[in-house]
């Protein structure tokens, strides 16, 4: 039992790790303090607490740049991320269910096609996609971005779901089938609820990728009122140059939603990333 006792060595380890963690968060400390200091003080005393914190800078940053306010960008990011994640879950889980349960050669081939899709460089397809989306009226609006992300992240989604479904015992489904339930009922009542853990993983992984993506919205949404947060911050830096307090206020505003979400849902989040590894 001695292994897990809290000894003075454990205490030392704890202190050491806490110190290292504090060091890890130094960039965030610099971010917040610099944002509320006058522009000139940012460099002269980078570690000092601001004498007279100027929170007004956040109001100014919230106004955004010539390309729209950060509030509008936040809304766009939310709509695009939530829309894409919901579409991914709906279409991905049902597809994975079929792929996993059908099995056999066709199932394996389709599965492999999805897996390859993870490795293929989507960058190669951007210009053809842009042209096609333009013709369909899907450039510069939410629907197009949702469709784009749903397509681009479908391989990862199906991959995660399929692995999970394959490990699910069929007993419940077979029992339901014996009871005379159709496929739809079985999927919605029996399978989908069992998929909850991996649904969480899919939502978090794809959600983060979409939320943080920079290049696609830069290309597909530039010049519209629907730019997402990373593009808005980028434009902001382009316009306000080296006014670090203003830029850091914008950066802080842009990372706050994710950081907040992280603090609220960290258990689920950590499980999502580590989820597939036990055993």
């Amino acid at each position: 039992m001695g292994l897990f006792r809290y000894s003075w060595r454990t205490f030392l380890r704890e202190m050491l790790l806490l110190a290292l963690a504090a060091l890890w968060w130094l960039p965030f400390y610099i971010l917040t303090t610099t944002s509320v200091k006058p522009s000139s003080e940012g460099f002269t005393s980078p570690f000092q607490l601001p004498g007279h914190p100027d929170l007004g800078i956040y109001a100014q940053a919230w106004q955004g740049s010539g390309n729209g306010s950060l509030g509008q960008a936040l809304e766009s990011s939310l709509i695009i991320t939530i829309g894409s994640v919901m579409a991914l879950i709906a279409l991905g889980s049902s597809a994975a269910y079929v792929v996993a349960r059908r099995g056999g050669r066709p199932g394996n081939v389709v599965y492999l096609l999805f897996v390859l899709g993870i490795i293929l460089p989507y960058q190669l397809g951007i210009v053809p996609l842009y042209a096609a989306f333009r013709r369909l009226g899907l450039v510069g609006n939410y629907a197009g971005m949702v469709l784009l992300y749903t397509g681009l992240l479908m391989p990862l989604t199906v991959f995660l779901y399929t692995g999970f479904v394959r490990a699910l015992p069929r007993d419940y489904e077979e029992a339901a089938q014996v009871d005379g339930a159709g496929h739809g009922r079985i999927f919605f009542r029996v399978v989908f609820p069992l998929l909850r853990p991996v649904t969480g993983t899919v939502a978090i992984l794809t959600g983060l990728i979409i939320w943080n993506d920079f290049f696609l919205p830069l290309v597909f949404l530039s010049g519209t009122a629907y730019i997402t947060l990373p593009v808005a911050v980028y434009s902001f830096v382009g316009e306000y140059g080296a006014q670090w307090n203003l830029i850091f206020a914008a950066v802080a505003i842009s990372i706050l939603p994710v950081l907040g979400f992280f603090l609220l849902a960290q258990r689920q989040l950590i499980r999502s990333f580590g989820g597939g590894i036990k055993g």
């Binding site: 293929l120 989507y122 960058q123 190669l124 397809g125 951007i126 996609l129 469709l147 681009l152 479908m154």
Partner: peptide, 9 residues
């Protein structure tokens, strides 16, 4: 969105 677009690219 993957294969056709990437092949075209």
């Amino acid at each position: 969105i993957h294969y056709l677009a990437i092949a075209a690219g």
